[in-house]
Write a protein that binds this DNA or RNA. Structure first.
Length: 856
RNA sequence: GCCCCAGUGGCGAAAUGGUAGACGCGGCAGACUCAAAAUCUGUUGGCCGCAAGGCCGUGUUGGUUCGAGUCCGACCUGGGGCACCA
């Protein structure tokens, strides 16, 4: 009895859950199944508050569904391959495997301390040979399906370290370690043919009713299906030289003033062989690296090749061929025609290099004689002019007409083009899933036989030097060709870590199965609720959708979409502190003082004032990272969970504040004191005429209903607000000196409250449940039911507006007809006074909500 | 550069197109205390007013509607993604 002691209580209940095995999902359970999953973490070493929020949100859902009678699968694993382990290996000489295993151990313990209802018996890490070996088997399956192929891809090349860099490792065009200027290079790479599913991935979005619209929209734009024209231009002096371009604006073809090739276009490379100036220009273009953001934000640069092509619609028009740094090789044909008047990028380019600007779309109401394009391209609708046979047509009509004409004369064809590119999966790195391929001088690239899987990573790789240590490991590389038996070499590329995360959810139902996907997988999939960061809106989620379809077509899965419902949560931020000299200061070194309503921060040690900055994403460099472990030590994890869940809607960013945490801690204690003040031994009564008891019962049932609805709608912050209200109602009906009827109502209310807080503050809930003699564990108890009849109100207060402004209110029976409410309103003296001298012209009555009188 | 999202009191926020600001934090006042902390009670969008009450108010701006924080257009600011960070 007395103050709630989280330290003692929390550990005890975690032990009780573990002993009872309450979070194990069972195959032999007849109840309906529910698969709840949060995006698995990269084992960086520490759980940060962002993780805590992500898993707390998922845990609310898992615990809620369990209480609602579902057989819940709520597993956890580790996305364990990746760059940070290699960096640790390079910097500290630690084996990436040992580093990862150690991190997993400490993070597992931290996650467990959060009180998450996870079935740990299904845990795995993607760096386990048992997992990546299955992934290699999946690779062989994709190979058989024809979804694996090899072609040249563009990579960031560090010429000093002679190594491929990730985009993240390119800082302002330079290698992060070497500082050397990075160049874009072509390299033979393994690809997955995701584009084969482009249409299906696009169409499938329509069926994802429970995904956020913004995610679907982002994926739709990413896939980027467009209808346009593939058109061939021929060089004026050498007609056998063809350049194909793709355009979505064939209607503007008569406004063309140049052709632009990507610096990576084969023709550009060919011409560069005999033109040193062009070669130098291409080298300059390639210094931007491979990222689209870098390429498209760079200053627009061009180089005139001197070649001219004939306009396919009018042989009297000749267009110069340029090489430009803003044309992407990977989209369309890697070459465009420039129509400066109707495309802003082309216009900027034309202005810079003095190319003609010829408007061919006349905006509505504009005069053909005077219409000019100056600094802004016209991209709106209008009528085509100065365009021969297209004159007078609308933009859309002209597109069709241009495509039809091109097909008739044989210079082009209508085409559907996707922005989506095939998935380059090869990585020149040692800490990843080896690609199960062997290169044989006689047989070419052949796959490793299934019986020889897994292809294991060798132990003791040397990460101290830049580059892929697998490529240097001649012992590991050397292997007999499985086809001809002759000497051959293993593929030394490993798979993109996105491959690891593209199917892990299908492994949890049967995590020790001999096959990649075990027999019980289809009984659990799809994941009913997936929770993770919005930053994964496109890549991870799209790859998982692709892989699910590929596995379906291998006969391993019976679903097309992996995630039935998706919820994307926001980040956790924290305000930043800086000393007068600009140095960042950690939050716990700062003391906050109030001067009236003004917050000031000083260094706790010296009293030096600090500058309080904006709340920003937690990061080491800003020193504003808060670890959940520290919080739990003082207030317990339940307070931390309550705060993270209550302060902001889960889809939005939340700012971590000590004050907010203390508020949650107060709630924990207020709840506990309500349970603590009722012994459970009182003689209870059920007097229906005791209005205080009836009021409390109504509050309890209302809380059960509104908390339930809030959880179902993912409005977890509102759910906690309803809990606050409920506790307030209990406080207003204290046990001390209460009537037997009120004590009875309190007993019922406490039973409801203990179960309602279960998903949010699970340890506290158990302690409360035990104090009122609840049966078993809250974690196993059923969700509280509520009685609608008890909540229903007989009368409603209805606001009355006159001309849209609130001017009074009336009482009306719940559900009263519009006619009845109208009568009440027009008899109300206050309303009548307001209406003096006016005529009521129309009355809007919204049942049980509002009345609006239109008068004048 | 392109795609997506968000913007409401001092702060985090709430609000099926129907009383803007629930709930929490902070502030202010009071109770308890020798005192402080903790706790409890009340109060708290701005302006005007003794009061009753009135006017204004959801980033800016224009529109749709009997009625707009919510829907539509333009703009501003901040955030996420851009294919090798995960």
């Amino acid at each position: 009895m007395g103050r709630y002691n989280p330290k003692e209580v929390e550990a005890r209940w975690r032990a009780a859950w573990a002993e009872a095995g309450v979070f194990r999902a069972r195959e032999d359970d007849e109840r309906p199944r529910y698969y709840g999953l949060e995006m698995f973490p990269y084992p960086s070493g520490k759980i940060h508050v962002g993780h805590a929020r992500n898993y707390a949100i998922g845990d609310v859902i898992a615990r809620f569904k369990r209480a609602r009678g579902f057989n819940v699968l709520h597993p956890m694993g580790w996305d364990a391959f990746g760059l940070p382990a290699e960096n640790a290996a390079a910097e500290h000489g630690i084996d990436p495997s040992a580093w990862t295993v150690e991190n997993i151990a400490s993070m597992r313990e931290e996650l467990d301390r959060l009180g998450l209802s996870i079935d740990w018996s299904r845990e795995f890490a993607t760096c386990d040979p048992d997992y990546y070996g299955r992934q290699q088997a999946i690779f062989l399956g994709l190979w058989r399906q024809g979804l694996v192929f090899r072609k040249e891809g563009l990579v960031n090349w560090d010429p000093q370290d002679m190594t491929v860099l990730a985009n993240e490792q390119v800082i302002e065009g330079r290698g992060w370690r070497s500082g050397a200027a990075v160049e874009r290079r072509k390299l033979a790479q393994w690809f997955f043919r995701i584009t084969q599913y482009a249409d299906e991935l696009l169409e499938g979005l329509k069926g994802l009713e429970h995904w956020p619209d913004k995610v679907k929209l982002m994926q739709e734009n990413w896939i980027g299906k467009s209808r346009g024209l593939k058109l061939v231009f021929r060089a004026s002096v050498a007609p056998e030289r063809e350049i194909e371009v793709y355009t979505t604006r064939p209607d503007t073809l008569f406004g063309a003033s140049f052709l632009a090739l990507s610096a990576d276009h084969p023709l550009a490379e060919l011409l560069a062989r005999t033109d040193p100036d062009l070669a130098a220009f291409i080298a300059q273009c390639r210094s931007t690296g491979t990222s689209e953001a870098a390429i498209e934000t760079a200053d627009k640069l061009g180089f005139d090749t001197g070649i001219e092509v004939v306009h396919p619609f009018d042989s009297s028009i000749l267009l110069p061929v340029w090489v430009a740094n803003f044309v992407l090789m990977e989209y369309g044909a890697g070459a465009i025609f420039g129509c400066p008047a109707h495309d802003q990028r082309d216009l900027d380019f034309a202005r810079k290099y003095g190319l003609p600007v010829r408007p061919v779309v006349l905006p509505p109401g504009a005069d053909a004689k005077t219409f000019h394009v100056k600094q802004e391209a016209y991209v709106g609708p209008g009528e085509i002019f100065r365009s021969a046979f297209l004159d007078g047509l609308s933009v859309d009509e002209a597109k069709e007409a241009a495509i039809a004409f091109a097909q008739t004369v044989g210079c082009g064809r209508g085409a559907t083009v996707f922005r989506l590119r095939d998935w380059g999966v090869g990585r020149q790195r040692g800490w990843g899933c080896p690609i199960p391929v062997i290169h044989c001088p006689n047989c070419g690239a052949v796959t490793v036989p299934e019986a020889d899987l897994p292809v294991r990573l060798p132990a003791g790789l040397d990460f101290s030097r830049p580059g892929n240590p697998l490529a240097r490991d001649t012992d590991w590389k050397s292997v007999a060709c499985p086809v001809c038996g002759g000497p051959a070499e293993r593929e030394t590329d490993t798979l993109d870590t996105f491959v690891d995360s593209s199917w892990y959810f299908a492994r949890f139902p049967d995590p020790r199965a001999g096959a990649p996907i075990g027999p019980s997988a289809n009984g659990w999939l799809p994941v009913d609720q997936y929770v993770g960061g919005i930053e994964h809106a496109v890549l991870h989620l799209l790859y998982a959708r692709f892989m699910t379809r590929a596995l379906r077509d291998q006969g391993l899965l019976r679903i097309s979409e992996p995630f039935e419902r998706l919820f994307t949560q926001g980040m956790v931020t924290h305000e930043t502190f800086r000393r007068q000299n600009g140095e960042w200061v950690e939050p716990n070194a700062v003391e906050i003082r109030f001067e009236g309503a003004t917050r000031r921060g000083v260094l706790a040690a010296t009293g030096e004032p600090v500058v309080i900055g904006d709340a920003e994403k937690m990061s080491k460099s800003r020193r504003n990272v808060v670890a959940p472990a520290e919080i739990a030590a003082t207030y317990g994890v339940d307070a931390a969970r309550l705060f993270l869940l209550s302060d902001s809607p889960p889809e939005r960013d939340v700012q971590w504040t000590t004050a907010g945490l203390e508020g949650a801690w107060r709630l924990v204690n207020r709840i506990w004191s309500e349970f603590d003040s009722q012994s459970g031994q009182e003689r209870l009564g059920d007097d229906r005429s005791d209005s205080a008891a009836v009021g409390l019962r109504r509050a309890a049932h209302q809380a059960a209903r509104s908390v339930t609805q809030a959880i179902e709608g993912f409005r977890l912050n509102s759910a906690v607000a309803r809990l606050y209200e409920f506790v307030g109602a209990l406080k207003a009906h204290p046990a001390a000196g209460a009537s037997r009827a009120v004590l009875g109502a309190r007993k019922e209310a406490l039973g409801i409250l203990a179960r309602l807080i279960g998903p949010f503050a699970p340890h506290l809930a158990e302690e409360c449940w035990r104090s009122i003699g609840g049966e078993g564990l809250v974690a196993q108890a059923s969700w509280p039911q509520w009685d609608e009849a008890l909540i229903a109100q007989t009368e409603k207060l209805i606001p009355v507006q006159i001309n849209g402004k609130r001017r009074g209110e009336v009482r009306a029976p719940t559900g009263a007809s519009a006619q009845a409410v109208e009568t009440i309103v027009l008899r109300d003296p206050e309303i009548l006074r307001r209406l003096e001298g006016m005529t009521v012209r129309k009355i809007f009555v919204v049942k049980d909500r509002i009345v609006n009188l239109v008068a004048g």
